[in-house]
């Protein structure tokens, strides 16, 4: 019984860390721009497909390809915000970004289907299947690696946001755009950089997700929903909030799967989501950034 509890907790933490990484970009964009990015999942799947291409064309290990993929996704995200989302918001309203991001998600999903087919894919090198046993607990090594990478990347983001000038500009823009402008912050640039960062984290998460789970173009919807749930649980705009929300979702799912039944993790996760919206709409570590106000 105790073994089962520990195993569920370990599984939950490992799974949750990847959810956190997948959601941190969603959280950043919601917190800074106030945009609910419905194409977040498709950026994650873009990362997974780029890892697949790197592995199949030049034999590059997905983990080695991760920094490059994150950089490519940063560029994609930067341009996406500059030339699509920003004009849409300027000409219409913040709400129009919902339509734009949803449209982009559909277009990219179909593009992936055209290029890669709708078949399920997987980017699993051989070491993805090695594991260790500690007493009665089994831990897959790739999940451990994914956990470490997720924690390090989220910590770097938190450090950038807190310590570096660019991070301070992002936080200032998120708190009050006009005040930030008056202080000389180029907010248009900050929005684009924030979106680029969000896409880079989505791409990096996509690499890990492609290694851990089967994926297809249609998987993007699930990852957008997970991103949303994590942000509601943890709170928008904060790296620590995303980490906490992801871990919470992972642990809730694992404990429910182990002790209530494997049919119920989603039901329980969404029940917690509703409760959180009722009791603490800003999430556990929600900031007062304008997106979450």
């Amino acid at each position: 019984m105790l073994d089962r509890l520990f195993q569920a907790l370990v599984d939950g933490v490992l799974q949750g860390s990847v959810l956190s990484l997948a959601a941190v970009g969603f959280s950043l964009i919601f917190g800074v721009l106030g945009v609910i990015n419905l194409s977040h999942g498709v950026l994650i799947i873009l990362g997974a497909y780029l890892a697949l291409v790197a592995l199949r064309t030049i034999g590059l290990d997905p983990l080695l390809a991760l920094p490059l993929i994150a950089a490519i996704c940063f560029g994609v995200g930067y341009l996406y915000q500059r030339f699509l989302i920003s004009p849409a918001i300027r000409r219409a309203s913040l709400l129009s970004s919902l339509l734009v991001t949803y449209g982009v998600a559909l277009i990219l999903q179909n593009l992936f289907t055209l290029v890669f087919s709708a078949d399920n894919q997987s980017v699993r090198p051989d070491y993805a299947n090695s594991f260790d046993r500690f007493g009665g607990i089994t831990v897959n090594r790739l999940q451990l690696i994914a956990f470490a990478i997720s924690c390090v990347l989220i910590a770097i983001l938190a450090w950038v946001l807190r310590r570096l000038p660019i991070g301070r500009s992002i936080r200032a823009t998120a708190e009050h755009e006009l005040a930030a402008r008056l202080c000389g912050v180029d907010t248009d640039q900050i929005y684009a950089i924030s979106f680029g960062l969000s896409a880079a984290f989505a791409g990096a998460a996509g690499v890990l997700i492609g290694m851990l789970f089967p994926f297809a173009p249609s998987s993007q919807e699930d990852w957008t929903i997970f991103g949303f749930v994590v942000v509601v649980l943890g709170g928008a705009g904060s790296a620590a909030g995303a980490l906490l929300g992801g871990l919470l979702l992972g642990i809730i799912s694992a404990l429910t799967g182990a002790f209530v039944g494997p049919a119920y993790p989603n039901a329980v996760a969404f029940l917690v989501l509703v409760l959180m919206l009722l009791l603490r709409p800003h999430g556990l570590l929600g900031s007062a950034f304008h997106g979450s106000r």
Binding site: R4, F213, S253, A254, A258, P262, P265
Partner: peptide
């Protein structure tokens, strides 16, 4: 008999149980 939800990304609970 393990019943899984239609949307699924993890079956670690089922797999742990199968090990036991």
């Amino acid at each position: 008999t393990y019943r899984l939800p239609p949307t699924l990304t993890d079956v670690s609970g089922v797999v742990s149980d199968l090990r036991l």
